[in-house]
């Protein structure tokens, strides 16, 4: 699969851009946290598209955001 570029993303209708980004993020997140991959992907998709594109190219920044989201989700679930 070739990398998702900003121009590819811009060519898609706005509504589909999040889905396109999600489709690329989901497998990467699933490798780290299979059980909550859908939820964590949804949480990350609230980040701006340009930053999400950068995260797809930089595993470190993606890992950092994923771990941040997982920590918040786990704290929330512990409270419930």
């Amino acid at each position: 699969q070739e990398p998702l570029t900003a121009s590819m993303l811009a060519a898609a209708p706005l509504k589909e851009q999040k889905q396109l980004l999600g489709e690329r993020l989901y497998p990467l997140i699933q490798m780290l946290h299979p059980v909550v991959a859908g939820k964590i992907t949804g949480m990350l998709l609230e980040i701006d598209n340009s930053e999400l594109l950068h995260m797809l190219e930089s595993p470190e920044s993606l890992h950092a955001k994923v771990e941040e989201a997982v920590a918040v989700l786990q704290a929330h679930q512990a409270k419930e």
Binding site: E23, G38, K39, T41, G42, M43, L45, K65, E68, L73
Partner: peptide
Amino acid sequence: KPFVPNVHAAEFVPSFLPKG
């Protein structure tokens, strides 16, 4: 903009996953 994880964000469902 700092990233504030939102636990109420909708769950993402990839189109390549079988439905249900």
